[in-house]
Design a protein around this nucleic acid. Structure first.
Length: 513
RNA sequence: GGGCCGUUAGCUCAGCUGGCAGAGCAUCGGACUUUUAAUCCGAGGGUCGGAGGUUCGACUCCUCCACGGCUCACCA
């Protein structure tokens, strides 16, 4: 019900629409195009935070921001103003503003965006404030903000209307400042090492570079299906063939898989490739990169993630997959173990063992089910089975495994890296093995990419490559349990449009016109 | 996709074994020139997520649906 028995408007949006109308009746335009401010609120705070209570600086400043609280006391009113940098108290008095302006100020709604001009002073209670001389409504807010004390907690509203979450929850805003910082630190680190950032296609005719189900889309003019990329890997290595010896791409991948606390359909990856390097060089580079970022962001290399103690001091512990299984799960398995035993062990840990799984896949299953989640880390797990690594170079003294490693932190993979397979004949064989697996019924396999093999035929220098999951790194450094907390707009099902009095108003205006 | 849990005023939440729908904040009206979760007086505000069903009677029990959370599976 939007009207009560006295025919008063009770719907909060209608109340605010009425307030908007009142402003327009007074000839005040509530949506301005520009406001020149002299100070960010943080600058005012920085310059005058230390003045004594009761001090009038006489210094004039103009600031702008959103009203988050209003405390009226008859002929004087306090308000909290928040801009992108900080919050400050405003003091408005009838004396200073005059009757008309003062009434306008007390009738502001919480959430309104205003520009102010006044002098800096500190109240007797020691609150740094701006004594208003002038103010201007810059944007009228038509929707009530959540309650000031409990704030916004409803997770669904927080994600659907992230803008409200960001207004209300400073810690959420900090997560995204940190995210931005992490990304720019990574770019800075790689740029200084002589890497160049490149943009390769997001629309792939063949989804490659990873094992995952792709999103399919369609190009109308060419009448062809295209896939949103699942990884940029094959394009980046083509660039190494072309002579870019240090390249990286830091951008989105798309995978048509389940959504969970660790998975979003689109997520951000860093992939980097360095010519004339191998996976051991990648271990060093990744250790250096990650410890640099951790130190810059956390100020220390030892911290807790969700109660798990992490220690990023170098060198990180390095174990082969088989060693890790032995040490952490106390299972003595290897490529020497007969396949039936491997199957039994894998099943024991809950793996869904398919008949066509070879020893390598079974060992990987055992590692993932029995070991991975128990590692605090960071720990480097290396010597991955060739069976699960179709793009990595085989180890010279052991053809069962490849020169590949993953970095595990808090039970999760955050880095995957290897010496790139640069033998075109071997690569073609691996693609054929993937095709055979697909025929055997494996749902997720890599597709045969003829042009990629052709590129290798020209000669890919020995190359080391690595991929780093940015979202997961951000989760670690911001201590967030869910990936949604580090994505500004995590994927959600569409909602039913709610009734919106503002849109109703717009429709009615149209009818009048 | 499976399992478990949740959805009550603008927000945060109560609401017992089925019996008149509640609080705080916000809003509206009034008082108040140093408050800061301002205070004081007064008032209004609900399709109890949606649709069915059981019942004399459903926020409460049952079924289905929607959305969300956690979890398992696929995956990073």
């Amino acid at each position: 019900m939007m009207f009560d028995e006295h025919n008063e408007i009770t719907d909060p949006i209608l109340v605010r629409l009425r307030n908007l109308d009142k402003l327009r009746e007074k000839g005040i335009e509530p949506y301005k195009k520009k406001f020149v401010r002299t100070h960010l609120i943080s600058e005012v705070r920085k310059d005058y935070e230390n003045i004594e209570p009761g001090t009038e600086t006489g210094v004039r400043v103009s600031c702008a921001g959103r009203i988050l609280a209003l405390r009226t006391h008859g002929k004087a009113t306090f308000a909290d103003l928040k801009d992108g940098s900080q919050k400050i108290q405003l003091f408005a008095s009838l004396n200073q503003l005059g009757e008309e302006e003062y009434e306008l100020f007390t009738n502001l709604d919480i959430g309104d965006i205003i520009g102010v001009e006044g002098t800096v002073f500190k109240t007797r209670k020691g609150e740094l404030s701006i004594k208003l001389e002038k103010f201007e409504i810059l944007s009228k807010s038509l929707r009530p903000l959540p309650e000031k004390w409990h704030g916004l907690k409803d997770v669904e509203i927080r994600f659907r209307q992230r803008y409200v979450d960001l207004i209300m929850n400073e810690d959420v805003k900090q997560v995204f400042y940190t995210r931005s910082r992490i990304i720019s630190l990574i770019r800075k680190f790689l740029d200084e090492k002589g890497f160049i950032e490149v943009d390769t296609p997001m629309l792939h005719p063949i989804p490659g570079g990873a094992t995952a189900r792709p999103f399919i889309t369609h190009h109308n003019a060419l009448d062809m299906d295209l896939y949103l990329r699942i990884a940029p890997e094959l394009y980046l290595k083509r660039l190494v063939v072309g002579g870019f010896e240090k390249v990286y791409e830091l951008n989105r991948n798309f995978r048509n898989e389940g959504i969970s606390v660790k998975h979003n359909p689109e997520f951000t990856m860093l992939e980097l490739y360095q010519a004339y390097a191998d996976y051991l060089d990648m271990m060093d580079l990744i250790e250096e990169l990650v410890t640099y970022v951790v130190q810059e962001v956390k100020g220390t290399l030892e911290f807790e993630y969700q109660g798990i103690r992490l220690n990023f001091n170098r060198p990180w512990r390095r174990l082969t997959m088989v060693e890790a299984i032995k040490e952490i799960a106390c299972e003595n398995v290897s490529f020497e173990t007969d396949i039936e035993t491997l199957r039994q062990v894998a099943k024991k840990y809950g793996a869904d063992v398919k008949p066509y799984y070879g020893k390598g896949k079974l060992i990987t299953e055992i590692f993932e089910k029995a070991v991975e989640s128990k590692i605090a880390g960071p720990m480097i797990i290396y010597d991955y089975p060739v069976e699960v690594s179709p793009l990595a170079r085989k180890k010279e003294d052991n053809p069962d495994v490849v020169e590949r490693f993953e970095v595990i932190v808090a039970g999760r993979e955050i880095v995957n890296a290897f010496s790139e397979l640069n033998d075109p004949i071997d690569q073609a064989k691996r693609f054929y093995e993937q095709v055979k697996l697909a025929e055997a019924g494996e749902e997720e396999t890599q597709r045969f990419d003829y042009d990629y093999v052709r590129a290798l035929e020209y000669g890919l220098p020995p190359t080391g490559g690595a991929g780093l999951g940015i979202d997961r790194l951000v989760m670690l450094l911001t201590d967030r349990y869910s990936i949604r907390e580090v994505l500004l707009f995590p994927h959600l099902r569409p909602e039913e449009p709610e009734e919106d009095p503002v849109i109703e108003r717009a429709k009615n205006d149209d009818e009048i016109r």
